[in-house]
Design a protein around this nucleic acid. Structure first.
Lengths: 229, 229
DNA sequence: TTCTTGTCACCTAGGTGTTAATAT
DNA sequence: ATATTAACACCTAGGTGACAAGAA
């Protein structure tokens, strides 16, 4: 069995509509996909990998602005039409693969080397996604069968885990300011953009309670009122 | 077979008497021990590891200063007596171990995660060495025998490689100024201490030709004349 | 108008020798 | 006198969103 790490943070993003930046060079995910694994055979070899499947067959576009709103980005999504042609269906192997069950289970497994790109011709092995499309990350555990004719048992030698709270929209620039603010507040690498007390996060953070309102209110692209609650 | 990378640099250090810093927290080696490997079975699994053996049974001390010399460190070594009690004989497995021969051979194998410490009680898995003692790094390739009774064949399933030019003295602070200057000139992380043209290295560097004389001459702890040529 | 790209300041994370203080 | 330690400034290396310019 598998347990998603930082589930509270994922939930908070998911509630706002998670967005992940894609760039030509490749961009990491935040939050990072991390899991704890239980119930492996400690002595057996396993490969761990991730892939990304479209949530639907749609292309999205930014929602309209309420009258008098000057912000560049709203927080609602409209369907812009049918999905663009599917990207190459790449897979990201965890760089420690293959390794023994004991190794995988003894600490959190982190996919922080995984990068997302919108470059269809990428040759860095990054995951290729269409911007303005929604994706569901999937996590796969493959048992490395020591038998000679292991191909025959491929069906039964892997298991897939899906956490719906990790769904996201791929974007080249953030569309929802509240996503931006939550990223700034929770990603250590974005600390330079925080204008609230640096000590407020994550020490004093309670996931339910109007998260990051101060950061939101003092945003550099202020919006008179939240587009949707 | 195994080929030492950066052999020219190792030779240059070895000629001066290589020193490696040891600290309580652990210090990387510079130059880094890196090799190219040939002739593995591409499909077989191998473990790669290093250890360090004493070159002799001696403890060293800094040599005397010539009259009128105000520098703190000379560049000659005197025998101070018999070696201190041997440190725990630890081993450093390359973190990618185990991996297929094909994987090891397709690029340079770098031991840049290896750290040296003088803390006898270290529990970070670092290599423990006695300061002021001389050591010979060794590189071992272990074939992972798939046979059930692989223990029986342990003798024949590994091979050891020794490069004498990688010998060094473990120190807590550099003893030879010319070693310090060569480290500053060749280690990118010490760039902040260079006072010569940053472009001179390594672009214009010819290993034989009075290396780094300008840096040496402008050293912050100037010595009237080199202690020994 | 909407989306994408490239550059940038500002971070995290951690590897350098220096230096002054301390230990032996 | 010699050896070790810890704090420090200054680097490498690379992950952030902001922003202005460009593309569709």
């Amino acid at each position: 069995s598998v347990q998603l790490e930082m589930k509270a943070l994922w939930d908070e993003f998911n509630q706002l509509g998670t967005e992940m930046i894609v760039t030509k060079a490749g961009r990491r995910m935040f939050p990072t996909f991390q899991v704890k694994i239980f119930g492996m055979d400690p002595m057996a070899d396993y490969m761990l990998l991730m892939d990304f499947v479209p949530v639907d067959d749609k292309r999205y576009r930014q929602g309209p602005f309420p009258p008098g709103r000057y912000a560049f980005h709203s927080s609602s999504w409209l369907v812009a039409g049918k999905a663009d042609p599917a990207t190459p269906g790449r897979v990201h192997y965890h760089p420690d693969s293959p390794a023994k069950g004991a190794q995988w289970m003894k600490q959190i497994v982190s996919f922080d080397k995984l990068k997302l790109t919108n470059n269809l011709l990428d040759d860095n092995g990054h995951i290729i996604l269409n911007s303005m499309h929604r994706y569901q990350p999937r996590f796969h555990v493959v048992y490395v069968d020591p038998r000679k004719d292991s191909e025959k048992y491929a069906e039964e030698n892997f298991k897939t885990f899906v956490f719906e709270e990790t769904r996201f929209t791929a974007v080249t620039a953030y569309q929802n300011h509240r996503i931006t603010q939550l990223k700034i507040a929770s990603n250590p690498f974005a600390k330079g953009f925080r204008d609230c007390d640096p000590e407020d996060w994550p020490r004093n953070h309670r996931p339910g309670a109007l998260p990051l309102m101060s950061a939101f209110a003092r945003s550099r692209n202020p919006v008179s009122s939240p587009a949707h609650q």
